[in-house]
Nucleic acid binder design. Sequence first.
DNA 1: TTGAAAGCGCTAACAG
DNA 2: CTGTTAGCGCTTTCAA
Lengths: 350, 350
Amino acid sequence: MGRLERHATITDVAALAGVSVGTASKALNGRGSLREETRRRVRDAARQLNFEANAGARNLHSGRTYTVGMITTDTIGRFSIPVLMGAEDALGAGEMSIFLCDGRGDPIREQYYVKTLLSRRVDGIIVTGRRTEARAPIGVGLPVPVVYAFISSADPDDCSVVPDEAGGARKAIDHLLAIGRGRIAHITGPDHHNSARVRAAATTERLAEEGLSLVAPPLFGGWSEAWGGQAAGILLGSGTEFDAVFCGSDQIARGVSDALRAAGRRIPEDVALVGFDNWDVMIEGAKPPLTSVDMNLQGLGRSAAERLLAAINGSPSPGRHALPCHLVVRESTTVPLRSPPASPPGPAGQ
Amino acid sequence: MGRLERHATITDVAALAGVSVGTASKALNGRGSLREETRRRVRDAARQLNFEANAGARNLHSGRTYTVGMITTDTIGRFSIPVLMGAEDALGAGEMSIFLCDGRGDPIREQYYVKTLLSRRVDGIIVTGRRTEARAPIGVGLPVPVVYAFISSADPDDCSVVPDEAGGARKAIDHLLAIGRGRIAHITGPDHHNSARVRAAATTERLAEEGLSLVAPPLFGGWSEAWGGQAAGILLGSGTEFDAVFCGSDQIARGVSDALRAAGRRIPEDVALVGFDNWDVMIEGAKPPLTSVDMNLQGLGRSAAERLLAAINGSPSPGRHALPCHLVVRESTTVPLRSPPASPPGPAGQ
DNA sequence: TTGAAAGCGCTAACAG
DNA sequence: CTGTTAGCGCTTTCAA
């Protein structure tokens, strides 16, 4: 294998260029005042030796490492990825590097990660997870700032960036009301799950504001397609009339969609359907494609990283920060009029 | 915020314990010979100051950083996650930390990441992606070992750990033949996609060994449910008789499943169905649950990390290493006899 | 058993 | 303009 023996050091570069290490350092970092010719010689030597300054040695002076740790409390998955990507963007894609640590729901493991991250002198830590539940802080009096993304810290003084799930649910209901649906059912996840409760409460509340209520109490169950199908069956069997179902997740919505169709109900003509998560795989698999609430996870990650950077630079933003969700309307709530207008290119509005 | 001002240094510890830094170092690392009383004093001081040795400073001597970089060539997603987790396990969960870099399919970005990883003096690099295609090496003559996982390097001398997709396809066919299905169709992804081609070729080959052939040429299309449904329609419309469909992905299989059921075919009685990927979401959503080929991505990640560690320690394993896939049998190919026998707990066999 | 000193790779004062 | 020196936090000889 054409593998080099070792990394070149600045001493090697200086020697090759025939200058002192101090001069080499200045030349490479564009500091001090040097003859252009000298600078060039040093740079050539560096290139020739494939020199990359040792970040660790450099950090020793600056006190900063330009790295951050990201700990996922449970397993890394569908929710953590977009958060991670958003964070990566905000951290300048390589300007600062990210240590990824998968806590796997094990507090011991998590504490171990916190320790190693601290020993690596990360400039800060982002904590994320797949539930929006508040969780115990990963530590108190840590020597570096911590920001919680998606998940939030139980300590209200910690900085947490979370999706406004209640707002998202309200937008879903707004939309259903706007298209003339007033007999709405709600099928969602387990009632011991924070997201399920919050979304259900907001749904009920929003309807109450209009003097309306759900056609039946929220159906709490699981997050799966199977539960969606089962719940749809319960609804149909009860004889309750309904012209819309707002689901706590896209998976549930898909199960509902399949079950309703099998029972002869047309979507959206007979029943309009709204999901939550805006998860492409489920959205596209459903017939017709699902209208869904998007939590803007990537934006969440970006915001969390920005706040972390600010905190590192001495401007922390303690407290719980909620970011708006937005509704993505598709055919499960609207019959398209001929060809839909082409939307202009560019980043999706928030 | 109860944030500490700065990290304690070994000098602080030594001062508090009333010893020299050298002694403190020995005490904390269990080296040299010291009075037990001294060791205790130092350790107490360290605990009191919340001391965590600065890994960067330590690395300066050892020459190793106990970190590795992981670069995903395209976007990090469904395939990279298990690979990452496997790697994390093999790297001792914190013993060595992982820098995660999301290449997003941009070669410039990728090269940038390689540079920063090298400047951070990672001990090695793992490259992964979401396609099994061979790709250009991320660099030549790099000063650290590189292992490709899932994806493989175009340079046969590089170390790549890949799934034996052909073997997986053969196992699927073996199984279908074993349950008495001889009229098999194959629906898969785009023919410009390596995985689709390899799996189709192995399928045809395995059948040929038995003097059989597919009931129709492989149907190449996309990886989506939509394509699965469409292809099933083509198959049904052509009047070709078939008693099994082997699909290039679980998403396709799910589309096929829905379409066949809608057309009145029973699964598995009339048509047995096998997918590829063993992706829980798709598997569980399908009715009945899908038999599928599992590529053991986590094992792939583990193996890649182990080979990387070996290479770091001077024992590289150049070349392309294929890991076996295994078939997970579910109800889309078998009618369960009463209650299925409870399988003993423990790690799933490979 | 402990301390002093050198050095890992680099930056930053300060002289020359 | 360039070289010398000190020091970042730690480990590791080598003396004491």
